[in-house]
Design a protein around this nucleic acid. Sequence first.
DNA 1: AATTAGCACTCTTGGGCTTAGAGTGCTAAT
DNA 2: ATTAGCACTCTAAGCCCAAGAGTGCTAATT
Lengths: 344, 344
Amino acid sequence: MNIALRKQKILAAVIENYIATGEPIGSKTLQNTEGLNVSSATIRNELADLTVKGFLTQPHTSAGRVPTETGYRYYVDNLMTVEEPQERVRRYIEARINGEGDAPEHILSAAADVISELCGTAALSSTPSGEDTRVHRIRFVQTGRYTSMVVLITSTGMVKSRLFRCDFNITPEMLNVFDRALNEKLAGQPLSLVNQPFAQSFAASFGELGLLMPDMLISVLGACKEASGTNVYASGTTKILYRSDMSLSSARSVLELLSDNSRREKLMQTVPDGTNIYIGRENASPELRQSALATTRYYIEGSPAGALALIGTLRTDYPNAVSILEYTAKVVGEQIGELISTRR
Amino acid sequence: MNIALRKQKILAAVIENYIATGEPIGSKTLQNTEGLNVSSATIRNELADLTVKGFLTQPHTSAGRVPTETGYRYYVDNLMTVEEPQERVRRYIEARINGEGDAPEHILSAAADVISELCGTAALSSTPSGEDTRVHRIRFVQTGRYTSMVVLITSTGMVKSRLFRCDFNITPEMLNVFDRALNEKLAGQPLSLVNQPFAQSFAASFGELGLLMPDMLISVLGACKEASGTNVYASGTTKILYRSDMSLSSARSVLELLSDNSRREKLMQTVPDGTNIYIGRENASPELRQSALATTRYYIEGSPAGALALIGTLRTDYPNAVSILEYTAKVVGEQIGELISTRR
DNA sequence: AATTAGCACTCTTGGGCTTAGAGTGCTAAT
DNA sequence: ATTAGCACTCTAAGCCCAAGAGTGCTAATT
């Protein structure tokens, strides 16, 4: 649907004013809009029309206008202008992300922190999903008489480790056998191949010796599963509670969503390419039907990796959110890419 | 302060009724108390006295009585009876804790979950503090051309690992040198010894070769620091938001306290032996001045290890809380003890 | 001396009413 | 097409009132 220029200007003014103040916006307030030199009566006519068309509503007859979800959607799609963050903000983001040393986990947790801080909302970040990740190498370290650690190194440079315990004394020779056999079979294979059936056939192929392996294999499977799964970091979740424009009950359900790891993961796993904004009922998760979700992905060496996201109320400063999200994604992607390249 | 038997009975009845219902308790309601065969007028006299003595208050003149913090304190110290949880509850706790395999971390996270669930409050658990833990063994695993992993095994069976990256190609021989030298120096030493000065003198003692070590040593220090620190798991934190008897603003500050790792750690590090209850203003943390904190410790092989805790409103079912906390602590201690003993 | 019945008193809660103010929609004039 | 003007609507806040709950006190009872 297309609408005339002046209507667009008025719609944008209502939305930006409303986002800034949280109060319904009336015709008189809008007269102060720069470049809009018409009377309040004219504005009222336009407002009435925008209301009929579904972009605005009134909380009650004698109140100003408030954007509807349709209104926000039109604004996000057609009216808002996204700029790169200010120099100082860019510097700040870089400093926070780059100061996190060698672990992608820390970078991502810092990314969530910095987004939450700069947008005043809850923020999420997910580690690169390991869907097309492969096993690079598997190593064993003995940690006790009955216990050892398996260390999985993936093709993307992630390292995951697991402990396992056996009913018998572990010997270095035994670990050597495990090591050689496993790496022969698995090196270069996709993580998804390392599943229950594989473990069974692997153990079976060793005959009697295979009976000693189940604990070890469970750990290998566990490590592969963990490496192929996503980890999600959340930051600033309690900020939602300070927003008067979200009902307490939906703030609670958002908080519950965000404190449940598996639900967070589910949310972050479906993030598509590019930057996307989901407003209110556009959200697939029922818990977010009163919120706005903005997502973007970061790219490692050119291919899509994990995602960054931000959860606010409908009254979110969308241009700023997109700007911060995209810039952070860029910095995160670069930084992790660099890390990984030096790990080869 | 000692008070007569009938007064005690009435005080206990008020508190238990109030905990159950959340409504101020009046003299008529109390007439139904078992074993209290007096008129409401008599009860009113007693109530008036308990109010003067500071155990009860009235929200307003024409309302029933509500316990004060002093009242709760007297109840907790003198009146309540703590019983072991029901058979089914005991079984349930055991099932949840024992189903968590080989990692103390998982056991503790499950402990927080189960406490939160059974008490309907937020719950915390901390890993054993490593204050008097010693280095058992340090091992190295090469994970890339420039990267390796250091694996620290402590005397308590904890395993911590860290990645490090060097500017040069790592060779197995080099790792062997690191391994032998470090273990010779550190095996059996307390973790607290592994600090900055140690790293410097260690590197210095190798002369030129020492220049290759800083990255490796930073990781060793990091692993030791992590192993000697406490990790805190939180569960059910959003439950606080559903309690109408806590103001939104203090619920928020409690939530913030609980979502900040370092503040959580600080809270859990000061937990004394045995089971303790801190009611309202008795709490050291200002964020908890409107809450009740119940803590207990678990013991591994007889010596105090980490802690379990529960955070609710003043209107917490204290007997149940203590009962669940103590039983969970017992199961957690046993289970971790078993784990550790088999790791030797 | 302790207990109890009775009653006046206090205070909250909720409903209904009123008023001030904000913002609208419509009409008639420009 | 725009605008001034005005009647209209609705909320928020203040006030009053009645009902109800629970008390504290007094005087009678055990």
